[in-house]
Every structure is written in C-alpha cells, then in structure tokens.
Computed example of a mutant assay.
Amino acid sequence: MMIWLLIACIGLATFAVRISFVLGLGKVEVSPLVLRILRLVPIAVLTAIILPQLVLPTGSIDFSTGNPRWIAGILAALIAWWTRNVFLTIAAGMVALWLLQWLL
C-alpha cells in the first residue's frame, strides 16, 4: 500500500512541475533567446541518455571498431541527419546493431 502512495505522490509532483510551465509560460512573454535555448533541451537530454550507451558498453570508453553500438550509432546519426526521419533512423540503427552484433 505504501509503494502505491509513493508512486501516486511522485506522479502528482511530476504533473505539478509540468503543468506549472504550461500555466506560467502561457501568461509570460518569453524572449527569443530563451526560446532558442529551450529548443535545444531535447537534443541535450537525448544525447546525455544515448551517448553513454554507445561508448560505454562495458563500463569503459570504447571507440574501437569492435564496438557494434558505436558503429550503429554513427550510422543512425548519419541517417537522421540525411533523412530527418525518426522512424527510419531508429529502424536503420537497430538493424545495423543486430547485423554488427551477429557479424562481430
């Protein structure tokens, strides 16, 4: 019972933080500089989540050609840059990772 109460409280806190930005920024004029900076937040967050998974597969930095995650990540980044298609990027990255893991 206690765990469910904790989950509910954390959910309410998360909702409160998110709704505060929606309600607060809806009434405030935000400068163009802040808007430009806010557009970069998702990229920074995704990079912080994904990059360690690509270069630290065993706990130490590995930029070698024996690291299939790094190579598949480079391929996915190139496809993302070239096509701007999220689904194609994910599919190509996963297929490249599976093939590289099978080959290496």
Rank of each mutant, 00 (worst) to 15 (best):
F15C: 01
G26E: 04
A77P: 05
I43A: 09
P32V: 00
V22A: 11
A72H: 01
I19V: 14
P57K: 04
T83E: 02
W98N: 13
A77F: 01
I10V: 15
V22M: 06
L23Y: 10
N85A: 01
V86P: 00
G66Y: 04
R18Y: 06
I74N: 00
L100A: 10
P68W: 14
V95C: 04
S20W: 05
L33G: 02
G93C: 08
V17R: 09
I37H: 10
G11F: 10
W70R: 05
G59L: 04
I90C: 04
M94F: 05
I43S: 08
A44H: 02
V86Q: 00
F21L: 13
L46K: 00
E29N: 13
V22C: 03
T14G: 12
L75C: 08
G66E: 11
L40D: 07
I50Y: 02
V45M: 01
I49A: 03
R36T: 08
I7W: 06
F21P: 03
R18A: 15
L46Q: 03
P32I: 12
R39A: 07
I71D: 15
L104V: 14
V30R: 07
V34C: 02
L40S: 08
L78M: 10
L56S: 04
A44F: 08
V28A: 11
R39S: 10
V30H: 11
V95F: 05
P57E: 02
L88W: 00
L51G: 01
V55Q: 06
I43L: 07
V45F: 02
T47A: 02
L51V: 14
L23V: 13
M1L: 12
M2N: 12
I71E: 15
A8Y: 07
G59D: 02
F87Y: 00
R18T: 14
V86E: 05
T58C: 04
V45T: 00
A76L: 11
